Simulated assay, not measured.
Amino acid sequence: MTVTFDDGRPVALDGETVTLAEALLLTGQLARAHGLVGPGGSVLAAGAAVLEAARRELAGASGTVRLPLAEQERRAA
């Protein structure tokens, strides 16, 4: 997954413009689909964790970060 930030806020996922709410929901859903969220876990909390991890990887306040979600992507990163 590629997350684009502008002034520290996620503005696009994989090149598609999103609102903050959409970014939280979509990243949370992807995290769940890739087994990073348990059955009782909050999708929004997972989305926030994924976006925070991406933001930490970002060198500045704006730019794009590639964040591996699939197990094979995490091993290759």
Rank of each mutant, 00 (worst) to 15 (best):
31 A>N: 04
3 V>R: 11
46 A>L: 11
26 L>P: 12
32 R>K: 13
37 V>T: 12
14 D>A: 10
45 A>P: 00
43 V>N: 10
18 V>Y: 02
32 R>Y: 09
35 G>V: 00
26 L>V: 12
5 F>Y: 10
21 A>H: 14
44 L>R: 11
45 A>L: 12
48 A>K: 10
42 S>G: 10
32 R>W: 07
12 A>M: 00
11 V>D: 05
28 G>E: 07
26 L>M: 14
24 L>F: 12
30 L>Q: 14
17 T>C: 08
4 T>S: 07
30 L>S: 05
25 L>W: 15
49 A>T: 10
35 G>W: 04
5 F>I: 06
13 L>V: 03
31 A>R: 04
28 G>M: 04
29 Q>C: 10
36 L>E: 08
34 H>Y: 13
35 G>L: 02
39 P>I: 00
27 T>D: 09
32 R>I: 04
31 A>W: 07
27 T>M: 06
25 L>Q: 14
35 G>A: 03
43 V>Y: 08
28 G>Y: 05
34 H>L: 05
44 L>G: 09
5 F>C: 12
40 G>Q: 07
7 D>I: 14
9 R>C: 06
43 V>S: 07
3 V>C: 13
20 L>E: 08
15 G>N: 00
29 Q>P: 13
32 R>G: 11
35 G>I: 01
11 V>M: 04
10 P>F: 03
38 G>S: 06
10 P>C: 04
31 A>L: 03
41 G>W: 06
23 A>V: 13
10 P>T: 09
49 A>D: 09
47 G>L: 07
39 P>S: 00
45 A>K: 15
15 G>Y: 01
36 L>A: 06
23 A>N: 08
50 V>P: 04
10 P>G: 04
23 A>P: 10
38 G>E: 06
26 L>C: 11
9 R>N: 06
41 G>Q: 02
48 A>M: 07
43 V>W: 03
7 D>Y: 14
13 L>N: 14
47 G>Q: 01
33 A>G: 13
37 V>C: 02
30 L>W: 13
26 L>W: 11
40 G>C: 00
3 V>A: 12
8 G>A: 10
30 L>D: 06
50 V>T: 08
8 G>W: 11
6 D>W: 15
42 S>D: 13
10 P>S: 02
10 P>W: 05
47 G>W: 01
19 T>C: 01
12 A>D: 00
28 G>W: 01
35 G>D: 03
20 L>P: 09
41 G>V: 02
25 L>Y: 15
41 G>A: 03
46 A>G: 09
48 A>Y: 07
39 P>N: 02
13 L>H: 08
43 V>D: 13
33 A>T: 11
31 A>Q: 02
8 G>Y: 12
41 G>F: 04
17 T>F: 14
11 V>R: 11
49 A>I: 03
39 P>G: 02
11 V>F: 05
27 T>A: 11
37 V>N: 08
50 V>K: 00
4 T>L: 01
29 Q>L: 12
16 E>D: 13
23 A>C: 08
11 V>A: 00
23 A>M: 06
10 P>L: 01
35 G>N: 03
10 P>H: 12
36 L>F: 06
24 L>C: 12
3 V>L: 15
5 F>H: 13
24 L>M: 10
37 V>F: 06
26 L>T: 14
9 R>H: 09
31 A>S: 07
18 V>W: 02
9 R>P: 09
14 D>Q: 07
41 G>N: 12
25 L>R: 15
